[in-house]
Design a protein around this nucleic acid. Structure first.
Lengths: 338, 338
DNA sequence: CTAAAAAATGTTAACGTTAACACACCGAAA
DNA sequence: TTTCGGTGTGTTAACGTTAACATTTTTTAG
């Protein structure tokens, strides 16, 4: 590997002190136009690039964000990956780089990374984030942000989350306005906070229109296609005219069940899904030739906002602890109709 | 933010010099058992963590790998994301961290990152990698590895790639052994190297068994479900008993076409797909209730190997320029039968 | 018991940058 | 003319670690 030039060599070439070069590079302090030009020429001539490590050491700031991903069985990695792309993009826009950690790292990243001055702030992603990790970071006053709504005993953490409640409420209202009265909901899981929020929004929507909540039209099964299928099979006995689902996977299962019963979407029943996995959803829509109405989670934007919030905290700004990102409710007529 | 302790404070507390502490931390040089214990106690007491930035500066090595992702229109991000997970994991296993760059970064990462001493090596991922970027890195003797087979004029780069040719050859042989003679291939694109390799393997397989290559049974359409659908529609006129496809998307399209013609998989026609997107593939299999035989791209392993190769280069080892990773050929009987 | 070798520890100077302060120099106001 | 304030530049000491060498202490061999 070729040796990279440093400030000293630039300074020598330009016939100035290294501080002057540093000032030119950082656009800080006063430098005469003439000197500036000399320095710029020298930099160009030897193709100088500032050493980020040395800079970080001197500034006590790396301009790097850590992204900790707690992936786990049963959670589809695609979901996090898409958010990660957003985080990367958001960080990049503000001149920050992104360092990735995964929970499965052998050594505890907790000390290795966060406390080793490698990153200025950290973003946590995933459901089962280790509470000790959080406490450890929190106590040091280290800037951190969660992706997704989060409660930790004794700590009020910063988080940014899609507004699931608002999303399903809007969708429910929409269905009701279309004339639906018997609207089902599949995927209410008390264990999974986002799923429970989706359920709450659904309930609120019903309430706003004075529609009585009917337990028979709600299912707790919330994970897989099989869940969606079973739930739908059962629910169809009670003749809903529309159904809302908590994610892409249950939706697939539900559709199978609906078809099996000889019902047609949207003529016999309207379906609104939740796009956890946009690519899957789209490919699937192509395949079945349906253009399902669905609630979109703006994952890219979510990631971006998470990055920006973290950076803002790093830079010492104040923010509310809870931050919500509105969902985009996609209206595709082909799939609701009474 | 709380001030983090440094070597000096540990040294003072333990009553030794900072070098002794450093030696204990790095397990280098000789330290008596007694002193070692004192130092360890001190480290524990003040919860000391080495400062990675300072260490990097002193060692002139960051133990960070850069991953540059050239994502682009038409390429499904899931594919790269899965590889990335592998890269992260492989790097982590060897004590390296991973810094992510995306092509859409405003500033040219080329100088900003790779040449700023932030990373020890870099992995390029994506089809349209900028040749100038490569040349720039290459000339400095900076360690870099491609994911995917790569040719760059005047440069012989390191790359690690799935062995597509071998994969489709094995699959073709398998089909022939099952008794198939009229085997179609969809997705031969001269523009996309992996797709062309897949085609080559198919052709080799035929040749090895003395089966005449029939142009009518090969289609160049290679991207979307629509491509797969159209190609299959056309090809079915020539009555293949089996068909091989280049990716998950074309496979979905082809299946639609097959069903439309009233044919049954695997009774009337055998199908072998290529799993670009494992999650999609699996969800899809669940949905249609078929267990398609398919060629799996070991993306996680591919990423891991890319990381390991890069690190090995960083550490000064020699390697062949081209490195192939064998595909796993999944045999699921339910989908081939004459 | 002594010299030499080996082991344990310490000192100093990097690594490449920036922060903080110091110092010239020049024009303007008193 | 003196003094002040600004502007442009330089000097020095961090930042926290490790490499290289230096020194002290302990062990071993004769």
């Amino acid at each position: 590997m070729e040796k990279t030039p440093n400030l000293n060599e630039v300074a020598k070439l330009a016939g100035v002190s290294i501080m002057t070069v540093s000032r030119v590079i950082n656009n800080s302090g006063k430098v005469s136009e003439k000197t500036k030009q000399k320095v710029l020429d020298a930099i160009k001539e030897i193709d100088y690039q500032p050493n980020m490590i040395a800079r970080s050491l001197a500034r006590k700031k790396t301009n790097i964000l850590g992204l900790v991903i707690y992936s786990e069985e049963g959670v589809h990695p695609t979901f996090y990956n898409e958010i990660m792309n957003g985080v990367q993009s958001g960080a990049s826009e503000l001149g920050y780089d992104l360092l990735i950690f995964a929970q499965n790292d052998e050594q505890s990243y907790r000390n290795r990374i966060i406390r080793s001055s490698l990153v200025d702030g950290v973003i946590f992603m995933g459901i089962h984030v280790n509470e000790d990790d959080i406490r450890s970071v929190h106590e040091k006053g280290f800037p951190y942000v969660f992706v997704g709504k989060r409660e930790v005993k004794g700590i009020e953490p910063y988080y940014i989350s899609p507004n699931y409640i608002e999303g399903t409420k809007v969708a429910t209202n929409y269905l009701i306005e279309q004339g639906h009265q018997k609207i089902g909901f599949i995927g209410q899981s008390k264990k999974i906070a986002p799923d429970y929020d989706k359920f709450l929004g659904y309930k609120q929507g019903l309430k706003e229109h004075g529609i009585t909540y009917n337990e028979k039209l709600v299912s707790e099964q919330s994970q897989s296609q099989a869940d969606g299928y079973n739930a739908m099979k059962e629910m169809l006995k009670h003749k809903p005219t529309a159904v809302m689902l908590n994610n892409t996977y249950t939706t697939l299962g539900a559709i199978t069940a609906i078809k099996e019963e000889g019902l047609v979407i949207p003529d016999d029943i309207s379906v609104i899904g939740f796009d956890d996995n946009q690519e899957l959803n789209q490919q699937f829509n192509d395949f079945i030739g349906l253009d399902l109405t669905s609630l979109q989670i703006p994952k890219l934007e979510l990631g971006k906002q998470a990055a920006k919030l973290t950076i803002s905290l790093v830079e010492g700004n104040e923010h509310p602890k809870a931050n919500y990102l509105d969902l985009v409710f996609l209206q595709k007529n082909s799939c609701q109709k009474l």
